[in-house]
């Protein structure tokens, strides 16, 4: 099941980003994304799960470039969502392989639990992202700078907390 969703998410990611670029006439970039998607698929097929990490980064870069080029935000969001799901599932499947668990019932239970949580998080994220795109606020430069610094500080705190580990 996870394997199917992983491949499906990769197809969604590649197809939506490619379509988004094709729509705006960026044929070369669209073909490049298609080729990267194909390579990504081949790598996953041969159990090179690390390829999903490179794929996620490339998808984020492609999405950022797409926003800058004023592409349709729907395709871009779907692309990043697909890449995120694929990255998550590739890692989960690799963990399952490493664990060498052969108990089918146990494996199924783990997969179901993981997919359910992933679905909740991604759907909530999608809803929030959609809401954020609808509600557009305008900030002054000072506010933007303050928000930037606060966000950077907040994320740094989170990462350092994560590295130390929660008490």
């Amino acid at each position: 099941m996870s394997l199917l969703v992983m491949y499906l998410s990769l197809v969604v990611c590649t197809a939506t980003l490619t379509w988004g670029y094709l729509e705006s006439g960026q044929h070369i970039t669209a073909w490049a994304i298609g080729c990267v998607g194909l390579l990504w698929l081949i790598a996953l097929f041969y159990r090179r799960y690390w390829a999903a990490s490179i794929g996620l980064l490339l998808a984020v870069v492609a999405a950022g470039f797409g926003i800058w080029l004023d592409l349709s935000i729907g395709w871009i969001t779907a692309g990043v969502l697909g890449a995120l799901v694929n990255w998550d599932l590739a890692n989960f499947i690799s963990r399952l392989h490493v664990s060498g668990s052969k108990d089918d019932a146990e494996r199924r239970a783990l997969e179901h639990g993981h997919l359910a949580r992933l679905a909740i998080v991604t759907l909530t994220g999608l809803a929030l992202a959609s809401a954020a795109m609808l509600i557009q606020l305008r900030f002054s430069f000072e506010w933007a700078l303050f928000l930037a610094l606060t966000s950077a500080w907040g994320i740094s705190q989170l990462v350092s907390w994560l590295r130390k580990g929660p008490e």
């Binding site: 984020v60 999405a63 950022g64 926003i67 935000i73 871009i76 969001t77 990043v80 969502l81 995120l84 998550d88 998080v121 991604t122 909530t124 994220g125 999608l126 929030l128 992202a129 959609s130 954020a132 795109m133």
Partner: peptide
Amino acid sequence: ALALLLALY
């Protein structure tokens, strides 16, 4: 908005 997706995860 796109960052929100990753941030929630």
